[in-house]
Design a protein around this nucleic acid. Structure first.
Lengths: 127, 127
DNA sequence: CTGTATCCCATTAGATACTG
DNA sequence: CAGTATCTAATGGGATACAG
């Protein structure tokens, strides 16, 4: 088999680095509080903008739109605009979004499971 | 069975809310780029401060100490100081830390798996 | 209702310097 | 080597106002 490397005469490192920096970018996008809470709130449901705002406690109008745009851009949520008046916009997790949600669920589970341990550790540390 | 609620005459909601806000706090601590990258870098190994700084690409001295303190406070990493000169400090994941790492691994796996899909989605969105 | 833009304050994070 | 402190630039994020 003829590899890309043999054809180009250059090492494949450039590709690997590109993939790496992309992965880093995605990781930064996704590993943030609001993004994860939004994904968790969506779950299997379809929610409107205002419903999401109510559902994700403490999120501001601005952070919600900002993160929704980011999630949409990365293809993790689907944004469906109903051309009515007043407007109605619905958000749903895409397949990759749902896959991500599965891991977020685990993170939430982990948090619940270790609440006690962590609270105790904090008490010790703060002393 | 006699519940806490019957004894106190107050609803248990207060307890639930406390646990909830604690969970939120932990979630915010943990759902951040550097914390997750540090946990991932540690893995099963024990690393020194300087080794971690090399391992976690792009992390600054300051962010590393800050996040390590936070992780230590939450009982997710163990900090072992060797009273030598020059000093030598080693960091290791605790049991809860390793459990968390398992979920971080999944997140990393998810990222790798969906790199292509996400890159494509971005291309479409940016157009 | 949803979304964009602006103003503005709070927080974050890098760089640098200094200590044990 | 590891850690703290300080200064500063950049970013984050809330409040508000306005448009479609």
């Amino acid at each position: 088999m003829v590899t890309k490397q043999e054809l180009s005469g250059l090492p494949e490192d450039a590709d690997l680095r590109r993939a790496d920096s992309l992965a880093r970018e995605i990781f930064s996008d996704v590993a943030n509080k609001w993004a994860l809470l939004i994904i968790e709130a969506l779950g299997e449901r379809t929610l409107r903008f205002s419903e999401l705002r109510d559902e994700v406690e403490g999120v501001s109008h601005k952070m919600l739109t900002q993160n929704l745009r980011m999630l949409e851009r990365n293809g993790l949520v689907d944004r469906k605009v109903h051309p009515t008046v007043p407007p109605k916009v619905e958000y749903t997790l895409t397949e990759p979004g749902r896959a991500l949600r599965a891991t977020v669920d685990l993170l939430c589970g982990w948090t619940q499971q270790h609440l006690g341990h962590i609270e105790a550790a904090r008490g010790r540390f703060d002393a």
